[in-house]
Design a protein around this nucleic acid. Structure first.
Lengths: 188, 188
DNA sequence: CATCTCGCTCAACGGTCGTTGACTCAACGA
DNA sequence: TCGTTGAGTCAACGACCGTTGAGCGAGATG
């Protein structure tokens, strides 16, 4: 019926997309080790050898599946800071991209995912620290970052009921003072 | 020289101990999947078959290596609460037992480690929520718990430089207000 | 001393995984 | 129309892993 005959290039693009989607979903669900190329291929309705042919090896497939988790642009003033963070958390609680989930799922057990996570966290720490006054800006920024990391892990990857059931607005409301006290010593 | 001839029971006890120590260290370092029984056996200077003979299978070895991460006793008033949490964090930053690290390392990728982690976190949430007034006590308790989780992950498992280089006392000092604002709505 | 016990090793099996090379066949370009 | 390209498949290799069963040899037991 709708079995249109597609041009070669388009067909290739779509299969590669299917493979990447399946890889992202599987990596995000079970992590690097347990996500086998065979399982990815089956989910994409493709032969395992094709995955190798397109991405070279498993490492590269993972890299391609995780790549391009774009850091948002610059962060405004030291006060909009918290609101900006809470907004990203809000995103994380609903539609966090599969690629980020895949990276986070594997960051404790897969070396490359670990360095990718460290780099992403370092970028966020840098960005935050630039907007925080005081001597210990970097430590404060690191704490704010790891706080969000912990909440995201508990909610998205461990699925703690208390966080799953709470509307993201309430979590943001409860978390706001905790983050605010870390933005700097000056509490107007 | 010191090659004392030990009684059979004592010898058995020590080998089992060596295996468990090696298993804990390896599980904590690389996680469940990458920690092979062969590697554990080699680290304990023992044949892989002996590990199986003592613990049955890999799952049981992991269970034995992680078992008995004793939850501390009851938590006092809602004010000593934060200090108590910060004290446990202080422990976590220096001498956190290998067994706990092993569980945390694998909690995102190994199903049994995940449920063990969920249960441990749930116990802490229960304990905290009992000391927090108000409607949203459980959400607050969950946030306090995941905050500590995130800081511990960032420090112990990812090794973020900002946290590794900071003395634990300063981290406690910076984190105190963030946790305090979560203990309840009443801010005297 | 003779026998039993048991801590421990050795060699192998079966399964799964990442990866490879040869092959098929439809789309493409001249 | 015909040779070429390239998407996709098939079957297999080699490595590693968890696991097993038979066997050895030194300590316990009488």
């Amino acid at each position: 019926m709708s079995e249109r005959v597609l041009p070669r290039a388009e067909r290739r693009r779509r299969t590669e997309g299917r493979i990447l989607d399946a890889a992202r979903a599987l990596f995000a669900e079970v992590g690097y080790e347990r996500a086998t190329i065979r399982a990815v291929a089956k989910a994409a309705e493709v032969d395992p050898a094709l995955v190798m042919q397109y991405f070279g090896n498993k490492q590269e497939l993972f890299r391609a599946a995780v790549r391009a988790t774009p850091d948002p642009g610059a962060v405004p003033g030291p006060d909009e800071l918290v609101e900006h963070l809470l907004a990203t958390l809000d995103v994380k609680m609903s539609e966090l991209p599969q690629g980020s989930l895949a990276m986070m799922r594997s960051m404790l057990t897969h070396p490359e995912a670990a360095t990718a996570a460290r780099e992403a966290l370092a970028r966020q720490i840098d960005r935050l620290a630039a907007s925080i006054p005081g001597e210990d800006a970097r430590v404060r920024a690191a704490l704010m970052t790891t706080i969000l990391l912990g909440v995201t892990v508990g909610h998205q990857l461990l699925g703690l009921p208390e966080l799953r059931d709470a509307p993201s607005a309430e979590i943001a409301r409860l978390l706001r003072p905790s983050l605010r006290t870390l933005t700097g010593p000056e509490v107007p």
